[in-house]
Design a protein around this nucleic acid. Structure first.
Lengths: 151, 151
DNA sequence: GCCAGATCGTTCGTATACGAACGATCACCG
DNA sequence: CGGTGATCGTTCGTATACGAACGATCTGGC
């Protein structure tokens, strides 16, 4: 069937599909904007959002295995491996052996890491505020509820 | 103020900050789940979501410059470069010179690309449906409205 | 006590993502 | 017409992201 005929019949799905109408597109765009804001606010600390997430969890739990850290922050174990290695290279975290499991690697924060986290913590609200700036309180709550259901 | 004093007052921001309460975390999780669904549905087509997005835009506009394609799909020009190169390697798109601008590279789809897009198009609704499965119609509309405001 | 299957972390390969620096070209202004 | 600043696409470096295969270790069942 010729394209023109398909168009006349309006039966080619590709002709009515609009990228701008897709959930994935919105989610990506919103996340992308959030990331840009995060990066902007944290530039001089040289801290990515995933590194920050890892430090937050380590501060909260004091020490966790690498796999557990990945689970808590939503990172693949291969990804966590790299993130943690970069934190270690900057002495923000350290490795400890797990006395109960030789396979496991316990990650804990160093004082340097705690200090950097304190700095980051003082600006993280700016990231949230800027990210949510375009929407009101009721919408923020809706967004939270909906995204939590979805994930 | 000393850390100990802050702690006594319960004022260390790091102690009350919960990763699970952050917008960025929800957005990332939702997007991550969406991506997993996309990948699962499209595995045998060997098509990533960004490659799909590029093909969708090319189908719609027939031919666009690489930079414009990036703008339309929300990709960095360095990123587009790679995505398009991989599509070209599989003969899904082709390059054309721009008669009006020697710097520009026009991208257009090949019949192979169109065929693959047709295949992908037949399952894309499954991706959307599975992504939005946890939420109802009203919530879907809310989500759309809110995310569009945010981006 | 042993072994089969699960789990821990690594490495490799591939695909985004994006800032920065670069060469080529373009557009516009004086 | 000539030059200066903007734009196009590339390349490099770095950081996620994730599947798959791997060795080491652990665990449960027998």
């Amino acid at each position: 069937m010729k394209p023109e005929l398909r168009k006349l019949q309006g039966s080619d799905p590709a002709d009515s599909y609009r990228l701008e109408d897709q959930v994935g597109y919105w989610l990506r765009r919103a996340y992308q904007r959030h990331m840009a804001i995060f990066t902007g606010v944290m530039t001089d600390l040289d801290l990515t959002s995933m590194q920050f997430a890892a430090l937050v969890k380590l501060h909260e739990l004091r020490a966790v295995s690498q796999t557990e850290l990945g689970r808590l922050t939503g990172m693949d174990r291969a990804t966590v491996s790299g993130v943690v290695a970069r934190l270690k290279r900057r002495d923000l975290v350290l490795y400890k052996p797990d006395p109960l499991d030789k396979r496991s690697r316990i990650i804990a924060m160093t004082p340097t890491g705690e200090a950097l986290l304190t700095d980051a913590m003082q600006r993280i609200s700016r990231v949230t505020e800027q990210t949510l700036e375009p929407i009101g309180a009721a919408e923020r709550e809706s967004l939270r509820a909906i995204l939590q259901k979805m994930a």
